[in-house]
């Protein structure tokens, strides 16, 4: 009998262990990340997500190095000193030695698309602030597409038909799951420019004039006008280029320095002529 009771209690103990091992014992949630499905649901989250995009612009593939160094290496403005081997292929115009802003730009574009998609549902932001964020995001998206077009397609009117592959794929909706992954072909150059201009028009309309005092480290109405002027210039729409340039110069964002102050401008932490200038943060 005694033996029987022991056997029964051992079996019972065992059964308990078996059952507990199958329950929620093996649930582990990350502690330094949050669920992407609900990440963008507050004003603070939207602000943090915008900072995440500005951080991406500091990448060495974008303004962190390549946009400044590679044009000089590819052209004859700079000369490779062969000190380390870096930029030698670009200097020698080897196959494939060029800008590599594709991946980083599309990652940033998706971040912006997600922010733009999320804005209407945010409860704790005023409509004014939502508009300002949407305008800023539109500006940054336009800047990314503009630079992609400069690196991966022909400028409007300069196409060589034999090699022309069009513009770049236009992705304007955020992707957060495998089911929303798409693989669109390149849009035409004209369609790409239409989209960039549309984004910049939206930026100029939605970023309030008051934002100009955040210049030059954030996207401002003045910066959007300046970029749109440049985009019109690329698109050979000179009348609009001149008009937007005039608007930009009137915005107070970036101002021409006198001859005597010019050199000093480069020595100040932020050049007073800058329309948009990243403030680098190491993390």
């Amino acid at each position: 009998m005694n033996k029987y009771i022991k056997l029964k209690s051992a079996t019972l103990l065992f059964a308990v262990m078996m059952v507990t091992s199958c329950s929620n014992l093996i649930e582990v949630q990350p502690r330094q990340s949050i669920d992407s499905a609900t990440a963008l649901s507050s004003g603070d989250a939207i602000n943090a997500a915008m900072n995440g995009v500005y951080d991406r612009f500091q990448s060495t593939n974008l303004y962190g190095r390549d946009f400044l160094a590679i044009p000089d290496a590819l052209s004859d403005n700079g000369r490779a000193t062969n000190k380390s081997g870096r930029l030698n292929p670009e200097y020698n115009n080897q196959v494939g030695a060029h800008f590599v802003n594709w991946t980083t730009s599309y990652i940033a574009i998706n971040q912006l698309n997600l922010i733009i998609d999320a804005l209407p549902e945010i409860k704790d932001l005023t409509q004014v602030r939502k508009d300002a964020v949407e305008g800023e995001a539109s500006f940054l998206r336009a800047l990314l597409y503009h630079n992609l077009l400069r690196a991966y397609s022909y400028d409007p009117g300069a196409e060589v038909a034999q090699y022309n592959r069009g513009g770049v794929p236009l992705l304007l909706k955020g992707v957060l799951s495998l089911s929303s992954v798409t693989f669109p072909a390149r849009a035409s150059v004209a369609d790409c420019y239409t989209q960039v201009i549309k984004d910049l028009d939206n930026a100029i309309a939605k970023i309030p004039k008051s934002s100009n005092n955040r210049a030059p480290i954030y996207a401002t109405q003045g910066a959007a006008q300046a970029l749109l002027s440049r985009v019109y210039l690329y698109n050979r729409d000179y009348a609009n280029a001149a008009k937007l340039a005039t608007d930009a110069l009137g915005s107070g964002v970036g101002r021409f320095l006198s001859n005597t102050a010019y050199i000093g401008g480069f020595r100040s932490p932020s050049n007073p002529e800058s329309m948009l200038e990243l403030v680098y943060t190491v993390l």
């Binding site: 949050i34 992407s36 990440a39 602000n47 900072n51 951080d55 990652i107």
Partner: peptide, 15 residues
Amino acid sequence: FAYNGQAGMAPGGLP
């Protein structure tokens, strides 16, 4: 992620 002294975040992977 951070910009201008402000913390940032970004998507890290697809579920």
